[in-house]
Amino acid sequence: MKRNLVCIACPIGCPIEVELNDAGEVVGVTGNTCPRGEAYARTEVTHPVRSLTTSVKVEGGVHPVVPVKTAAPIPKEKMFDCMQVINAVTLQAPVAIGDVVVKDICGLGVDVVATNND
């Protein structure tokens, strides 16, 4: 079986073709122009992941919210579960880039970290 993807590893957006055998295992990746593309294609057809970026309420800072991201990509289907957890958080200023906002979110082994100072 073949699956056609557009690589999202970088803004070039290479068209990638992934060849899968009957067991659903990847047997070939073509069209990518870098190793990141191959890694993306392999993950995308087996267990797709995404980086999640959003914002968190902050009290006593310059702005009412501060931006955050997952420190590593998380399973795509867990994005809304993570949003629920993040939206329940209120931080106290000061916040610095890299501060851990939620540790090990949804038990995924990934922290949510601040991406700006406030």
Partner: peptide, 8 residues
Amino acid sequence: GLQRNIVQ
């Protein structure tokens, strides 16, 4: 827009 943004 960028292809990657249409996808993700």
